[in-house]
Design a protein around this nucleic acid. Sequence first.
DNA 1: TCCTGTGAAGCAATTCACAGCT
DNA 2: AGCTGTGAATTGCTTCACAGGA
Lengths: 211, 211
Amino acid sequence: MEIPFATIERLATYLRCLRHLKDEKIKIISSADLATNTKTSPEQVRKDLSYFGRFGKVGTGYYVGKLAKKIEKILKKRKKWNVCIVGAGSLGSALARYGGFKDSGYNVVALFDNNPEKIGTKIGDAEIYDVKLLPEIVHEKKIDILALTVPKHALPGLKELLESSKVKGILNFVPLSLHLKTRRKAAVLDVDLAQKMYILSYLISNKEEQV
Amino acid sequence: MEIPFATIERLATYLRCLRHLKDEKIKIISSADLATNTKTSPEQVRKDLSYFGRFGKVGTGYYVGKLAKKIEKILKKRKKWNVCIVGAGSLGSALARYGGFKDSGYNVVALFDNNPEKIGTKIGDAEIYDVKLLPEIVHEKKIDILALTVPKHALPGLKELLESSKVKGILNFVPLSLHLKTRRKAAVLDVDLAQKMYILSYLISNKEEQV
DNA sequence: TCCTGTGAAGCAATTCACAGCT
DNA sequence: AGCTGTGAATTGCTTCACAGGA
């Protein structure tokens, strides 16, 4: 069966919510309550989950801890993933320090930059390496995911290094679409912060609902 | 006519691409080329634009500069928007320094924090204020959009201040859904960085296409 | 011929509505 | 009675296919 991409996005949101409920010591939740907390509908919650199994208890709801574990398993087969950040500017450093990654099992194990003053220093536990070493350190440290936070103008000079680095996924913060011609294509997710601003101002001007 | 939300998201992406083409001195682009650069289809590009008018020249394509201006007008009625950032931690500071906002006409005019050591200092041109002053400075500086970058645990204590601040839009980086009960509801866009990681690892594990 | 703009068709996602379990 | 799980109905988005202008 073909699973809608929107379902995957929502699963991640459900998981975030379940984590929070767990912290609050809430043990059971209904699809209705999970829906209000994640800005969707109860049917949507049930349908999304039904693609992967039957996790609920009829007449009761879902056990928070159990469901969280199930969704976690669906989204990330392995427990731990290694992440690196290319571009140790302010955004890259902020991501390296961002606690939300580690909490979710994504460990930032290295940063890369071309500035000699930064190379060799550390952010948290992660060292900043010369970006020229990218392919070998990706290999050495078994890095799965790469977050790209270099300035726009630095991207063309980086393409080759990126293409020869065997990461499996790229989280691209550079406001340009990234087209790599690697054989085993990496999954690329673009995150454009200015785009969000445009969307917000459109929503504001058209007095729309929350999204 | 009801315009799909996905269309709005894509328009912002087209705009980003057009800006880039303009920098490269490219004057004309076809829907096919715009599509490859933004990971969509030519029909989709044309359909998206057709919701708002007829901007192309049959047999030729679109004038890059002209189209960029049109899309800009669609997404943001006004030229300049004032933005503030609540939470001057590493992510908040990185956003304040992020050039992409200013380039797009979104000016960060203030930050807010509760740390007395930060209050009074500046990041770029923007001063860091005591978060207690949020409602009045929002009013005073005519702030439209608020980016929320406080740590998770600080959110509950902030709800009241947020509710009494008359911003029109909120870009929420806190990994919790934000529910405000203000009369004139602000538009809220959630940005969850860890969610992106989950999505990436799902895509990787299922060897899917770029998204 | 080349490329846009757009109704119509096709497809995918969401919502409805209810059967069935506890 | 309450709530899940799910086929069926519906809505809405995308793709098709082509008319028409340069």
